[in-house]
Simulated assay, not measured.
Amino acid sequence: MNYSYTIKAFGEFTNLELYEMLRLRSEVFVVEQNCVYQDLDNKDPKSFHLLYYANDELAGCTRLLPTGLSYDDISIGRVVIAPTFRGLGLGKKIMEASIAGCQEKFGKSPIRISAQYHLSNFYQSLGFMEQGEPYDEDGIPHIEMLRN
């Protein structure tokens, strides 16, 4: 399989790229995870977005947020892998690219995430450490994590 990714500011998207990203986020976060929530939270226009492709098909994406938008630290959010591309190790690849993208766009500084709690060990393998106690977000246990 041929993998590639691009990082774009919101205004750099083509209509098709924007549609595919929002469709994937809706497919997983709203439909699959059965969470009725407002995905379009006014943070997208102020963020960078990593689009990860497998054989020219959108396999996953993340949102790279500057300091002050979600946290006092830079952040990675809206991490999603398309169901048809799960189990191929793309989660690690997309997160490594997202960490590098944050450092490229915002400089070397701590990165804070809100992780689904059952994925805590995965994020720890990428250098994130749990911060505080688990909490409920849209009916799914989450935990804040920080990578220095």
Rank of each mutant, 00 (worst) to 15 (best):
S120Y: 04
K105M: 11
S26C: 06
K43Q: 14
F48S: 00
G60W: 08
D39I: 11
Q124G: 10
D136R: 02
L90R: 01
I111L: 07
L18E: 11
E57M: 10
L22C: 15
M145W: 03
R112G: 05
E133Y: 06
P141A: 15
L16I: 12
Q131K: 14
P83Y: 13
V31N: 13
L40H: 13
E32Y: 14
V28T: 06
P134A: 15
K43D: 14
G87F: 00
F128A: 02
G132I: 00
Q131M: 13
M21H: 04
Q131S: 13
L51I: 06
G139F: 03
I113D: 05
D73E: 11
V30G: 09
S47A: 15
Q116N: 09
Q33N: 14
H49Y: 11
Y3E: 15
L126W: 01
F48A: 00
V79I: 09
Y19G: 06
A97E: 02
Y123V: 10
L58D: 06
L126A: 13
T6K: 12
M95V: 06
I99H: 10
M145E: 01
H118N: 07
R147H: 11
H49T: 03
D138H: 01
S109C: 14
T14V: 08
S125I: 12
P83A: 12
E144Y: 08
L65C: 13
C61P: 00
H142K: 07
F13K: 12
I113R: 03
T62S: 13
R78Y: 07
R86A: 05
T14S: 14
E104L: 09
I113Q: 04
M95R: 06
K92A: 15
E104C: 05
G132K: 01
P45Q: 07
Q103D: 15
T6W: 00
S26V: 01
L119E: 11
F106Q: 02
Y71T: 15
R112Y: 08
E12S: 13
T84E: 11
K92Q: 15
L126H: 03
Y37M: 11
E20R: 06
F10Q: 03
L119Q: 12
L90V: 08
S98Y: 05
Q38R: 15
F106M: 05
P66S: 13
L58H: 03
V30K: 07
R63D: 09
I94P: 01
E27H: 14
N55I: 00
E27G: 05
V80F: 09
R25P: 03
A9G: 10
L65W: 09
H118Q: 13
I94G: 01
A59K: 04
C61K: 09
P134D: 13
G87H: 02
I99T: 08
A115D: 05
L40S: 12
G77L: 01
G139P: 02
G11H: 14
I99N: 10
N34V: 09
N55M: 00
E96I: 00
G87E: 01
P134K: 14
R78P: 03
Q38Y: 07
F128V: 04
R63S: 10
N42M: 11
E96Q: 11
E57N: 15
T62E: 06
C102N: 04
T62Y: 10
L146R: 07
L51Q: 07
S98F: 06
D138F: 00
E137C: 14
K105R: 15
E130D: 08
